[in-house]
Amino acid sequence: MKAPEITSELKNDLKVLKMRASLDPKHFYKKNDREGLPKYFQVGTVVDSPVDFYHSRIPKKQRKRTIVEELLADSEFRRYNKRKYQEIMSEKAAFAAGKKNRKKKKFHN
């Protein structure tokens, strides 16, 4: 297997796959055992079955080129991300406010 040329799109897709545990809160993934991005990998294309033309097929207008584009187009994912971001920022603000109001301790030698 040859090492493919890593473009910015491929790099972003690999990062998304690496962080897939944070994408879906209800789905469990094992911990990644790899630090960086893999050197050797293959990218495939999902081919739709002609049998499922009307049932489980994504129309051409909704198809995206990369995983990142698919996630950005998914409204449920964006809503979840926005909510989590707001929670984290409010926690940080509360922590910073608590730090600011604390009295400074004087150390005696």
Rank of each mutant, 00 (worst) to 15 (best):
Y85H: 12
K82N: 11
F95I: 08
K18D: 10
P59F: 01
H55R: 13
G44E: 08
I6E: 07
Y29M: 07
P4L: 00
K26D: 13
K60S: 10
P25T: 07
Q62L: 15
R83Q: 13
E87A: 14
I67W: 01
I6A: 05
Y54K: 11
K99W: 09
K18V: 08
R83V: 03
T45R: 13
K104H: 10
K31T: 08
I6M: 15
F41A: 04
I58G: 00
K30T: 11
D13R: 09
K99A: 11
D48S: 05
A96N: 11
L14S: 03
T66P: 02
L72K: 15
F53L: 08
K39R: 13
V51Y: 14
F28L: 12
S90V: 01
Y29H: 14
F53S: 14
L10E: 06
P59L: 02
L23Y: 12
A94T: 14
A93T: 02
K100E: 14
Y40V: 12
V47S: 00
K61Q: 10
L23C: 08
I88H: 08
D24K: 06
Y85C: 04
Y40G: 01
V47T: 09
R20P: 06
N101F: 02
L17M: 13
F95H: 10
H27Q: 14
A73Q: 10
M89L: 11
Y29T: 05
K82L: 15
L17P: 00
N12R: 14
K39H: 07
D24E: 12
R102T: 07
K100T: 13
V68R: 06
D52I: 04
R63Y: 06
L10V: 11
Y29V: 06
Y40K: 10
E69Y: 01
D24W: 09
D48E: 14
D33H: 06
R83N: 08
Y29F: 15
S49I: 09
R57S: 06
K60R: 13
K103E: 11
I58K: 04
Y80K: 10
A21R: 12
E69H: 09
Q42H: 09
G98V: 04
D48T: 05
T66L: 07
G36A: 04
V43P: 00
D24Q: 09
L23M: 15
E5C: 03
A3G: 07
K100D: 04
A3H: 02
G36L: 01
S22A: 12
P38V: 03
Q62F: 14
D52L: 11
E87M: 08
Q86I: 05
F28I: 11
Q42K: 11
T45F: 00
N81F: 07
D24Y: 12
R63I: 05
N32M: 07
L37R: 03
K105R: 08
Q86V: 01
E69P: 00
P4G: 07
L71Q: 03
V43F: 03
I67P: 02
L37E: 12
G98I: 06
A93M: 04
E5A: 10
K103P: 00
E91H: 06
A3S: 15
K92Y: 08
K15R: 13
Y54N: 09
M19A: 15
E91Q: 13
K100A: 15
T7L: 09
N81H: 01
S90T: 04
K30I: 11
S90C: 03
K18S: 10
